[in-house]
Design a protein around this nucleic acid. Structure first.
Lengths: 240, 240
DNA sequence: ACCCGGCTGTGATGCTTATCACACGGGGGT
DNA sequence: ACCCCCGTGTGATAAGCATCACAGCCGGGT
């Protein structure tokens, strides 16, 4: 099969090796077959925009490969990144269910493989498959949960340092690094993007990183970042 | 029937006069009858706590009468009010569906009538009634939508003035006052609570109100607040 | 009528952070 | 080898707001 943008396309959800790990992919075969019939497998290059905040919902995008930046944007151009979506997530779900405009903008930051399902097809599918509908409720709950964390972080933090510490700890807990005393993580985003994730300015992020390095709390080598003093970070994230 | 806390109890969801207007109440009779069998009609006085952030989910609370304050709270005691829930809303829904701890704290601010449904009963009910499940997805979408607005307001505003203006406009658009040039609204919350809604301090809210009055943008008589210059408010909310 | 407690109004002070301005450095393209 | 652009580092300045401190005010209870 052709592989646009350097992707290896997964042909069918029925044979997808990742099924068991994914939330939405793990459905009984009858439902999966129905899903198979209404989905369009598509691929996007890096930097493609799946949908824009405010658009009326065309349908859902099931992310199979690559990462997608989910953000909101103010009238004066300021951007706030809410999350970086990973494979297995369903994007545009809440808007598609409710019929209200997309709340977020989705932009790929890797080459991505995506299954698109048109809104009317998807709604019909949900009515016919109660178990899928329940999965949707679960996914929405998770998204809501995420959003609540975001609200907590934005609304209840006193300082930018606190928010950055929270973010680094969260990142450090991925990839099975959670238990380690000195977790390491790939810094895949620029200072600008990190600033947009915690709602502060690029300069502040740079300064904070400089201070953390000076205080020996973190250390970086290339794009890898080592957390040398997890306790100190936690202190910053907790009380400040 | 006895009416604790001065409430007139609605006996059954089947005969509830408000059914048609409500999102969750408006279900086919078969589903409603099943719901009827698993719900516990309860009443709470003002100031009662339905559930606390971090508790593992006991079940859902369908609000029939009264208002409930939904908030999150930081370790150092700072509180952020996310919304004031109105009759017809389902509280604790996302936690009950996902099994994760309640994200918010729910506290009544009026005497309230509430239908409680235990988690296991509710999940069984959802599996058996696909249409109810779809309603749940819709409700969750709406909650997610709300949360996104909150994130936008908290994360993309430059000033407290901007957030207050947004809040006042939102309030002014309720109760069919939306179209009016000079909408009026009941100020049912203290400055402290308003501060907690926009993530600022009580003093700042007081000062902002003083300035808005001085600039003739608003005017208050008792607990009623008149918006005299909607355009100016919109300007503050939009650009600042 | 009194008092008391919760809400509101207002000044002074200092911290945090946005913003502007500019320098540096490294990697990719030609 | 060059340049150019993007990302990073750093200082100066000022705005915005939290915080403390205290005064007035209104309503409810006794």
């Amino acid at each position: 099969m052709l592989s646009p943008y350097g992707l290896e396309i997964v042909e069918s959800c029925l044979t997808c090796k990742l099924r068991a790990e994914r939330i939405f992919c793990d459905l009984p075969n009858s439902a999966l077959q129905a899903f198979e019939n209404i989905k369009y497998a598509t691929a996007y290059p890096k930097g493609a925009v799946l949908f824009v905040e405010g658009q009326s919902p065309r349908g859902i995008f099931v992310l199979c490969k690559g990462r997608v930046k989910m953000s909101i944007c103010s009238t004066d151009g300021k951007t706030l990144i809410l999350k970086i979506a990973e494979p297995g997530e369903v994007l545009g779900l809440s808007a598609t269910v409710s019929g209200k405009p997309y709340e977020l903008t989705a932009e790929t930051i890797d080459p991505c493989q995506v299954n698109f399902v048109k809104r009317e097809d998807f709604l019909r599918f949900l009515k016919e498959h109660g178990d899928a509908c329940f999965r949707v409720a679960e996914q929405l709950s998770e998204k809501y949960n995420n959003a609540c964390h975001e609200v907590r972080s934005l609304g209840l933090s006193h300082s930018a340092a606190e928010k950055l510490a929270k973010l680094l700890l969260e990142w450090g807990c991925r990839n099975g690094e959670a238990a380690k005393l000195e977790p390491r993580l790939k810094l895949a985003l620029t200072h600008e993007e990190i600033a947009q994730m915690i709602g502060t300015s690029r300069e502040t992020v740079t300064r904070l990183f400089a201070e953390l390095k000076k205080r020996q709390i973190i250390q970086s080598k290339g794009s890898t970042l080592f957390i040398r003093n997890k306790a100190a970070l936690k202190l910053m994230a907790g009380a400040s």
